[in-house]
């Protein structure tokens, strides 16, 4: 079983140092959540792991391979799928096309497996299954987020990077999405790295928590310990 090991990662965002020596491990089959205030570097962390941003120094390894600064299209082939912030779907594409897009790179090698993968994600989100022909632009915010996650899952990743899935969604929808992810992790052994600003929601399902503050790791412990740590909660999480 693979785990994600990030060590001494430094990334600049423009002229600003966004990540200033980050180290942590996301264990296999667990949900690790990265929490912290706005601008703490959470999104940059995911973007560096998936190859969208270049790391200045440090390493990221995934199982026994090092993926630091590989191109995103290579990294997704190693079994890491990234759902970026903001319901990233292509609005003029149909729901089905958005999902198919995520499996394009596997289509030639194994087209029957791709078909199976598509019907699996549609089983996961029945509301999308009813709307496969509809354009993604006509979906509600929650449905778009489900679609973005489906686009990532259809590549059959071993590690899912989720960036703020709760952003702008109603609590009930957030709960539904988080529970789906939780279920996937427990039943298939999917490793999840979940970035959330809403620490409560994230810590409720996570096994492990990493707290970022100004580009550094401020705390790295089990989610249960974080939930219990009242000093940390009042200092960083504000509740």
């Amino acid at each position: 079983m693979k785990e994600l090991i990030v060590s001494d990662l430094v990334t600049d965002y423009g002229h600003v140092r966004a990540l200033d020596g980050i180290s942590f491990v996301a264990s296999s089959g667990e949900i690790t959540t990265v929490i912290g205030a706005n601008g703490a570097g959470k999104s940059t962390l995911l973007r560096t792991i998936s190859g969208l941003e270049k790391a200045k120094s440090g390493t990221i390894s995934w199982g026994d391979i090092e993926i630091t600064n590989l191109a995103p299209e290579e990294i997704v082939r190693s079994g890491i799928a990234h759902v970026p912030e903001g319901h990233a779907v292509i609005p003029t594409f149909s729901v089905l096309e958005n999902i198919e897009m995520g499996a394009l790179f596997r289509r030639r090698k194994n087209s029957s497996d791709v078909k199976a993968a598509i019907s699996e994600v549609l089983d996961l989100f029945p509301r999308l299954a009813e709307r496969v022909k509809q354009s993604a632009g006509s979906l509600s915010g929650g449905e778009r987020q489900m679609l973005a996650i489906s686009r990532a899952l259809v590549s059959r990743p071993k590690l899912l990077l989720l960036d703020e899935p709760s952003l702008g969604l109603a609590p009930l929808v957030v709960e539904q999405i988080i529970q789906t992810i939780n279920h996937l992790c427990r039943s298939t052994g999917l490793t999840v790295l979940l970035v959330e600003q809403n620490a409560n929601t994230a810590l409720a399902v996570a096994d492990h928590g990493v707290l970022l503050a100004l580009g550094k790791v401020a705390s790295d412990q089990s989610a249960a310990a974080m939930r219990a740590d009242s000093a940390l909660r009042s200092a960083y999480l504000g509740y």
């Binding site: 191109a71 970026p84 990233a88 779907v89 897009m101 790179f105 596997r106």
Partner: peptide, 9 residues
């Protein structure tokens, strides 16, 4: 960006 994350070159 989404295309690259989907593995499209």
């Amino acid at each position: 960006e989404v295309a690259r994350l989907s593995g499209i070159k």
